[in-house]
Design a protein around this nucleic acid. Sequence first.
DNA 1: TATTGTTATACTCTATAACTATA
DNA 2: TATAGTTATAGAGTATAACAATA
Lengths: 147, 147
Amino acid sequence: MPHSPDPSLDLAATDLRLATFRLARRLRHERALDSMSDAQFAVLVILRQHGTQTLGALAERERVTAPSMNRTVNVLEETGYLVRTPDEQDRRRVLIEITESGAEIVAETIRLRDHALAEALAELHLSEEELEILRQASALMRRVAER
Amino acid sequence: MPHSPDPSLDLAATDLRLATFRLARRLRHERALDSMSDAQFAVLVILRQHGTQTLGALAERERVTAPSMNRTVNVLEETGYLVRTPDEQDRRRVLIEITESGAEIVAETIRLRDHALAEALAELHLSEEELEILRQASALMRRVAER
DNA sequence: TATTGTTATACTCTATAACTATA
DNA sequence: TATAGTTATAGAGTATAACAATA
């Protein structure tokens, strides 16, 4: 097992890994509709953020196979959270678009999660300095994740 | 939808939520054995960290039903990562204990994840001040998650 | 022929309901 | 009677293989 040259960096990594998993697990519990699975919700988030997608693009983004994504999309189509329309330019393709009610479910879940986290932060009575640490850390974490 | 009195706290919460989910998703990809599911791995982590548990205790910690946990435990027992032994004090109960090979799998996964994160941090060439921000933020995040 | 989406089939994780053994 | 664990059965997400339609 290789080690980085800076042992304090190893310690920071371990701390951050543990804290990230625990907080993510805690926040994931907050969802507008408990009846919707993580897989379904993730698809709606992609459609809301990145707009209309083909089935293949969705499968690639979520790193699942096309048949798997097809089943997930089927459920979301039946519940009315997205619609399929044929691509007229390339008729092998199907364009998948989020509906108004789908976008509302995503927005509501985000509101719930933000609210739960804001409540938790408020309860800890963090100082302005501590809040600033969290903001700066958030930016660093995103750089790590998106590297 | 209620709002906290401090709008800068709301913003910190949103930033932190996004960053946490993205980093967790990224780190979860690193696993010693891809053949083991998240559910199975989570059970081994509990057993390693908190010692021998009953089936009911495992189900409660993972917030799944007893039959669900029973199936997960069955698989881990078949693969030799844990053992069941009857509780002699209360013979309705079964004590579930991690084996040496189970503990080794957990340790290996933790090593992989720490290494991946340490590599990512090293690549960003963070300053000592930035690493300190991540360490302090990690402590705050754990307080939030465990509140 | 290659690509895109879909269907067929099977395996895993989840749940609820029913059952067994023990307290 | 109540509790701990298990089994029976079913629903949803995953996969691979095979198929249909289109480029």
